[in-house]
Design a protein around this nucleic acid. Structure first.
Lengths: 242, 242
DNA sequence: CCTCTCGATGAATCCATCT
DNA sequence: AAGATGGATTCATCGAGAG
């Protein structure tokens, strides 16, 4: 399914990214990913809880999403698999940026390197208003582990990018997914992507990255396995493209 | 060597923390550590460079510090060893906080857990003005991996602590060590330590943590292996205690 | 005492050039 | 051919010193 803004195209595909990615044409300049964190709890019982129960706060407003019930070992190898598949569809100077929380950060850096990407750093997303925790430090930040397929060419016209971004979680009716990322944050992250470079997003969710890619002038391919959220994304992009 | 503020005592010891820690009395409520990161490079050549050369910029202003030349495997097991030794001198509800950069963050979380500590989160230190890097995200933050020996009792009277702190690197003549941490940052981190709880600092450097501990009302034991920096710390604490 | 300008600095990274 | 060395780059912030 395709949506067109003034200059760019967003294509969205309903399916499992491990099956869909091999069918794509290559030429991607950036991979952006917000995979299920699978970190809601240590034991098998926690993994079996629904995502809206694990990550929801008071009343479950959101449909459950898939892929969050893997145990730690299989989660890491699965992460490495899709990162490897995505890498094979990328140009040599491509970049990758993967969201994670503190619990899975070490596993994400492992998986990224197993998949052949060069790990280059950690960008911090300050969520500004996280849930307070009495008597301990708040988990105020999430992290974007980023890397590249090969060397990054110098002297691109993008200046110096921040390593810390502060944006509140999307709130209220505008929020369409439990773990939706702010569109302005996604726009900022795309600053590192070469002008007009194609973007691949294997975990579309409610499509904030697709909206941001169109805003910043990139073609984008989004993949989503959960039917409910694929439909949510289609509606969002239909509305956005007017 | 001991220094006394109005209410508290700082004891500083010259030696290798792995040898010194077993000689200490127990009863510590918090371990704070800023170990050598050993992340200056992947190969043996990088490890052999002096710390002032690796981490300093143009003209080396600071004396070199020891312990930064371990390779990755031995660095991790060494980290686990001192964390384990420190843990055995702690009370059941003790806390630990360890500084690291992005490169070593996954290894620090491994070592902390190998040593028996419960890993509880990542506190982010925003350095505000890191060196800019053209065409990529800046490495703007360092990280404090924190955990506890056992459960953390609820309802301690410290309210909710931030998970993100912004402080510039100490600058100018006040800065006594290449990698010195800001005293206000150290003071903020000690907010989680129970009132009058004893603090252990195995990598004293130029003693910003010792100064912060006295300011916030804690007895503290600092250990430093490099003679030059032991003397620097002694002078700093002598001046501070008047 | 406050404001302004100017200069110096940084737990960096990359690459061309030697050995 | 592989490993070691040295130099260039970048800009927000801080501090010193002048006005």
């Amino acid at each position: 399914m395709k949506f067109h803004s003034a200059q760019n195209t967003a294509e969205i595909i309903h399916g499992d990214c491990l099956e869909v990615i091999p069918t794509l044409k290559d030429g991607y300049a950036m991979v952006i990913a917000d995979p299920p964190y699978a970190s809601g709890g240590g034991g098998i019982r926690e993994k079996q809880r629904s995502t809206s129960d694990k990550y929801g706060i008071d009343s479950p407003r959101f449909a459950d999403f898939e892929g969050d019930a893997r145990d730690q070992r299989s989660w890491v190898s699965w992460m490495a698999q899709w990162m490897s598949a995505a890498r094979s569809k990328c140009i040599d100077e491509a970049l990758i940026a993967v969201f994670t929380d503190w619990r899975q950060l070490p596993s994400v850096t492992d998986a990224m390197q197993w998949a052949g990407w060069l790990w280059r750093g950690i960008v911090v997303w300050d969520k500004v208003n996280p849930r307070p925790q009495l008597g301990r430090y708040k988990q105020q930040c999430e992290f974007v582990v980023w890397g590249s397929k090969g060397t990054i060419p110098p002297n691109r016209d993008i200046g110096v990018l921040p390593g810390l971004y502060s944006y509140s979680m999307p709130a209220g009716a505008k929020r369409l997914h439990q773990t939706e990322k702010p569109v302005p944050l996604m726009c900022d992250l795309f600053t590192i992507c070469p002008a007009r470079g194609k973007v691949l997003d294997p975990f579309m969710g409610s499509a904030p990255a697709e909206e941001a890619a169109l805003i910043t002038g990139h073609d984008v391919t989004g993949i989503e396995v959960t039917g409910h959220y694929f439909n949510t994304s289609a509606k969002r992009l239909r509305d956005f493209c007017g």
